[in-house]
Design a protein around this nucleic acid. Structure first.
Length: 350
DNA sequence: GATGCGTGGCG
DNA sequence: TCGCCAAGCAT
């Protein structure tokens, strides 16, 4: 690609971004910590979803020092509903490292910042270019889609090794004078114009530099293999209330799905169904009565939960029991929030 | 390199 | 209804 082509592409992209960029809260700052927080929240998550979480998070944790000292349950409570909860734990671990080893200054080289927990190739490049103006690649799904079309790159973007192809392309194409606007411009273009379906090519600032547009192939790119079907799991869920009006809750394991989040007791419905009988025996709970609360389906990225929730009265000396007010302060995944709401409606405890 | 890891919006 | 998607990373 010619020098002239490259300079024109950079100029059209950067000027379009400066003119058309959305007014987003993390675009009001160059504080590396705040940029970092925004980038972690934006991983696999829509902008509109992130905005209120970002605002609240920085109110609760305005500096790396405050986040470093936060309790994990309080941290998870702020992340509640945003999903991919390991992001929060990894962010805190990374921030603690910055506070302890870097004098609370986020490092400004790819080598150093990449060592931080939760900071991968994309987040490293995003923080470096946006907060520090370092000409580094920041390749996400948007960038791969845009450049696959512009440069007619036909590698399967679902394959991990393909990211390197685009990183190389960005390093060749990036505007050394405006790395932040260039990287954000590619992503903004992907979000607003060069969308997965029905790209708005007539509004595109680099249409004349796009191979896919020239060849009428925007619908064919990027190449991406399809995912396989997800695993279905069926559970009965028990909202168990004792005489004192407390409710039994359990904390999920520290690793894996919804790690360390809280839930009502769940019993998987398997082929050799034993149901609640086995659970109550194991946990020494005596149940009285059983009323259906709600049935719901919860779709994870790789699993589908079919939940059938019941309201029962029970007593137990073991298990962890909480009042409604206390449950409010526990980090709950969305399906448990929905069941809690059904319980409130059912028992009129609103 | 393949898999695990949330959630809500959209056509 | 449902599959796909949205500013990825850890293991």
């Amino acid at each position: 690609m010619s020098y002239q082509y490259k300079k024109e592409f950079q100029q059209f992209l950067v000027e379009w971004f400066q003119r058309e960029k959305r007014d987003l809260p993390w675009r009001k700052t160059k504080d590396p910590y705040k940029i970092w927080v925004s980038e972690v929240m934006l991983q696999q998550t829509r902008v509109d979803t992130v905005i209120p979480y970002y605002e609240n998070f920085l109110e609760k944790f305005p500096t790396p020092e405050v986040l470093a000292e936060a309790e994990e349950s309080f941290l998870l409570k702020q992340w509640e509903g945003l999903g991919y909860y390991s992001r929060a734990r990894n962010l805190q671990a990374g921030v603690r490292e910055v506070v302890e080893s870097y004098g609370s200054i986020v490092p400004n080289t790819r080598d150093e910042i990449s060592k931080l927990k939760g900071v991968g190739p994309y987040t490293a490049g995003a923080v470096l270019s946006i907060a520090y103006g370092v000409p580094e690649h920041a390749v996400d799904g948007n960038v791969m889609r845009v450049l696959s079309r512009v440069l007619l790159i036909e590698d399967d973007i679902a394959l991990p090794k393909t990211r390197k192809v685009f990183e190389k392309a960005v390093m060749d194409l990036i505007d050394p004078d405006h790395p932040s606007d260039f990287n954000q411009g590619l992503m903004e273009l992907g979000a607003l114009v060069c969308t997965p379906t029905s790209p708005k090519c007539l509004l595109c600032p680099v249409r004349d530099y796009c191979g896919a547009f020239a060849e009428g192939r925007t619908a064919e790119l990027p190449v991406k293999v399809k995912k396989t079907k997800v695993k279905k799991l069926h559970y009965d869920v028990y909202v168990i209330e004792n005489e004192a009006g407390q409710i039994c809750m359990e904390q999920r394991p520290a690793t894996g799905l919804l790690a360390n989040m809280w839930q009502f007791p769940m019993v998987e419905q398997t082929a050799d169904y034993s149901g609640i009988a086995q659970y109550t025996k194991e946990h020494e709970i005596e149940l009285h009565g059983q009323e259906e609360l709600v049935e719901l389906k919860h779709i994870f990225s790789h699993i589908v939960w079919h939940l059938k929730a019941f309201y029962v009265k029970g007593e137990s000396k073991s298990g962890k029991w909480f009042t409604l007010d206390e449950i409010e302060h526990l980090p709950l995944p969305v399906p448990m929030q929905k069941i809690l709401q059904s319980y409130r409606v059912h028992t009129k405890k609103l």
